[in-house]
């Protein structure tokens, strides 16, 4: 039976995962919400095009900002999906396969995102 209030998980990896979700969550609360408000309400999605991105990424600070946002948001989201798989899927072959697919998807999207931020 789970205790209430829920205790932080035991085990080294799950403990760091638990802490990471909270720390990255607080950072994302500021960084992701600011990014969303700026892009959707400040600039406006209908204004976004290649030239706007070129101007924005003319500053290395925006590239750095976007890289950290990518890293934190994708890691936070994919780790969340991993936790859902642990909780809703029976342990065994399929869960392992799906977790491997999830890991590969995480690496692929991270590399694609980082690549375009660095090389653009």
């Amino acid at each position: 039976m789970a205790s209430y209030p829920p205790a932080p998980p035991t085990g080294r990896f799950e403990m760091y995962s638990w802490l990471f979700m909270r720390v990255s969550g607080i950072v994302l609360l500021v960084m992701a919400v600011f990014h969303l408000l700026l892009m959707h309400y400040g600039i406006g999605v209908e204004q976004l095009n290649y030239q706007v991105v070129a101007t924005r990424w003319g500053s290395p600070w925006w590239r750095l900002y976007d890289f950290f946002l990518l890293l934190l948001a994708l890691t936070h989201g994919m780790n969340g999906a991993r936790i859902l798989m642990d909780e809703y899927l029976r342990a065994g072959g399929w869960r392992l396969v799906l977790k491997i697919v999830l890991s590969l998807l995480y690496l692929l999207l991270l590399v694609m995102g980082a690549w375009v931020i660095v090389t653009f």
């Binding site: 989201g77 969340g80 375009v116």
Partner: peptide
Amino acid sequence: GLGVLLFLSIHILETFTLSFGP
């Protein structure tokens, strides 16, 4: 959480198309 992750994945793919030119 899953919804935002789905959008984030689409958003990364769409941003990657910057590599294919204006």
